[in-house]
């Protein structure tokens, strides 16, 4: 009777499973470059209230109190390190699709990140309901990276500036690899 090779079989199966998982992930991600897909544009928040009377208030540049309490209920408060919607530190831009809420963060980072940032996006749905979205990070990145870092290249600013710690320790990993190879393979008498 032929001997069953357990280890190669398990290895082959795990590789096939991994390949299947990658295929599923590739199928599941949004189309490349789609500017309106959630990771690229905005994330929906579980808020839906009647638009009666609130649209006029938004047009006038004021976020209604009901909306503020709804946003606070999901936990987007100053205690959780989200910028708060207080009088005077936000403004509303009306666009064709809805309303952009721009918030000035203030606090400690005022020196480094002055000016308002796009934070919420409010849209009137067909049924007369207001839906609230949060702008995702790539939007802020695209709009602020040159102004903040002075680099014309989004990739470099992300790699070396915003994620400086990450890159520093990646470099350390390569350094450690080289040192390990030296310790394992280098022969003393030939130095």
């Amino acid at each position: 009777m032929k001997k069953l090779h357990l280890l190669p079989t398990v290895a082959l199966l795990s590789v096939i499973l991994l390949g299947a998982m990658f295929m599923y992930v590739v199928e599941d991600i949004p189309a490349f470059g789609d500017p309106n897909s959630p990771p690229n544009k905005y994330v929906p928040l579980p808020i839906s209230i009647d638009a009666d009377g609130l649209a006029g208030s938004l047009d006038a540049g004021v976020v209604p109190a009901e909306l503020k309490t709804k946003i606070a209920e999901i936990g987007y408060t100053r205690e959780n390190h989200f910028p708060s919607l207080e009088e005077g530190n936000y403004k509303i831009d009306k666009t064709e699709e809805g309303w952009d809420v721009l918030i000035t963060k203030g606090e400690k980072y005022e020196e480094y990140h002055p000016g308002p940032e796009k934070w919420y996006f409010i849209k009137e749905e067909l049924g007369g309901k207001l839906k609230v979205y949060r702008y995702s990070i790539p939007v802020r990145w695209q709009e602020k990276t040159e102004e903040e870092t002075g680099l014309p290249n989004m990739v470099t600013s992300g790699l070396a500036d915003y994620r400086g710690y990450d890159t520093m320790y990646e470099e350390t990993v390569i350094f450690t690899a080289a040192i390990s190879v030296i310790m394992l393979l280098r022969r003393r008498e030939k130095l």
Binding site: E148, G150, L151, F175, A178
Partner: peptide
Amino acid sequence: GPATRGFWVGNIVEVGIGVTVMAA
């Protein structure tokens, strides 16, 4: 601000990374 930051990040930090990677 941004111009200096771009100079440090874009040239000196990147050259630092490149030199280490090359030598390793």
